[in-house]
Structures are given as C-alpha cells and as structure tokens.
C-alpha cells in the first residue's frame, strides 16, 4: 500500500465522492438534523466515529466473516458502535443528544456506513479502510456543517445560537423547515456540479 493511494482513499471523501452530495446517500439525517450548525456538526462527528470504527473491524475481520452472513455481521458491528456513541453522548453532551434524538440510533441503518463496509472495507486492508472512513466521515461532517450553517444563518438569523444580523433582519423561516432542507440541498448540489463541470 503506497502513500499515494492511501491519500487518494482519504481525499476522495472530501470532494470527488463527498457524501451526501456526490453519493446522495444518507439523506435522512442530512435533511433532518441540519437546522443548525451545532446539530449538523455533532451528527457528522458521531457518524465519523462509527464509520472509522466499523471500517477497521470489518476490514480486520474480512477474511473470517463468511460472505453469506456478511451483512448481519456488519450490522452487529455498526450497531455496537452506534450504541457506544449514544451512551457517550448521553454521558458528556446531553443537550446535543436531546436535539439529535432518534437520529443517533438511526445511524445503524445509515447507507453511508453500511455502504462503505460493503463496498470498501470488506475488500481492502485496514490502513486503506481507516483512510476511507476518515475521508468519508470528515466529508459528511463538512457537508452537514455547511448545510446547517446556511440554514441557520438564513432561517433563524443566528450562528451557534447567537444573532448575527441586526434587529431589522426578518428570518427566512422556510429554510429551517423540511422543504427548505430539500431546496438548500438541491442548490448546493447544483453549485457543486457547476464547479465540477468546468
């Protein structure tokens, strides 16, 4: 495994295959938890942790896991790390846990995590799998943070809970509602395609 391919495995998650924009996977949390920067960022970190850990274990056990029962095995591994994240968040960042609510347990069925386990970690070595998991996770965190920031700034006129515009600012509340999430996601995808096509 040369350093060049390792770097490629890492950086592809940051732009070329950045989730959820390029892969368009894991849209449920993307739309649901990006009302504000804080929730999007927290969700991204939680997913990154689960993704890296599950990638490592799947990759380490790929010679032992029989192909016929690989999906149940992946689910056990992923579910374990999700519960760990849930418990740790409850113990240390309880208010954030309350805000993310049901979407933390739902990481178990997140397509990105299962997708990377199946498409990458099951076929590649541990080093490459860590690089892949980190890249994808950080890409997802950036996406959700940007989406959350845009929606929070325009929809509520705040950033990290603090007002950033003067009192005369009328919040564009459409942005923090569910349809606003779709519109915002679509616009960002469009801009990314525009940049990529040149």
């Amino acid at each position: 495994m040369s350093d060049v391919t390792l770097a490629q495995d890492f950086t592809k998650g940051l732009w070329k295959e950045i989730p959820p924009f390029r892969l368009v996977l894991g849209l449920c949390p993307t739309l649901a938890v990006t009302k504000a920067f804080e929730t999007g960022f927290g969700m991204g970190l939680a997913l990154t942790f689960v993704l890296v850990c599950s990638n490592v274990l799947v990759s380490a056990g790929r010679k032992m896991i029989p192909a016929k029962v690989r999906v149940p095995c992946f689910i056990i591994i992923i579910a374990t790390f999700v519960v760990i994240v849930e418990l740790v968040m409850q113990a240390y960042t309880y208010p954030l846990f309350l805000k993310l609510g049901i979407f933390i347990p739902l990481i178990v069925v997140n397509c990105i995590v299962l997708g990377r386990a199946e498409a990458f970690a099951y076929k590649n070595g541990i080093g490459a799998s860590i690089a892949d998991g980190l890249g994808m996770g950080i890409g997802f965190t950036i996406s959700l943070s940007v989406l959350g920031s845009i929606r929070e700034i325009f929809g509520a006129g705040t950033f990290l809970g603090k007002a950033i515009f003067g009192a005369s600012f009328q919040p564009f509340t459409f942005m923090v509602e569910a349809p606003g999430a779709f519109v915002c996601l679509g616009l960002m995808l469009g801009v990314m395609n525009l940049i990529g096509s040149e």
Binding site: C73, I84, L87
Partner: peptide, 16 residues
Amino acid sequence: VLAVLGALSGGGLALV
C-alpha cells in the same frame, strides 16, 4: 462467527 461477534458486542456494550 455470528455468535462470537454477538458475544463480543454484548460484552463491550455492557462495559461501556
């Protein structure tokens, strides 16, 4: 494989 994975997972979670 499934039984060992399940046991490890259960044990780890109980610890956490």
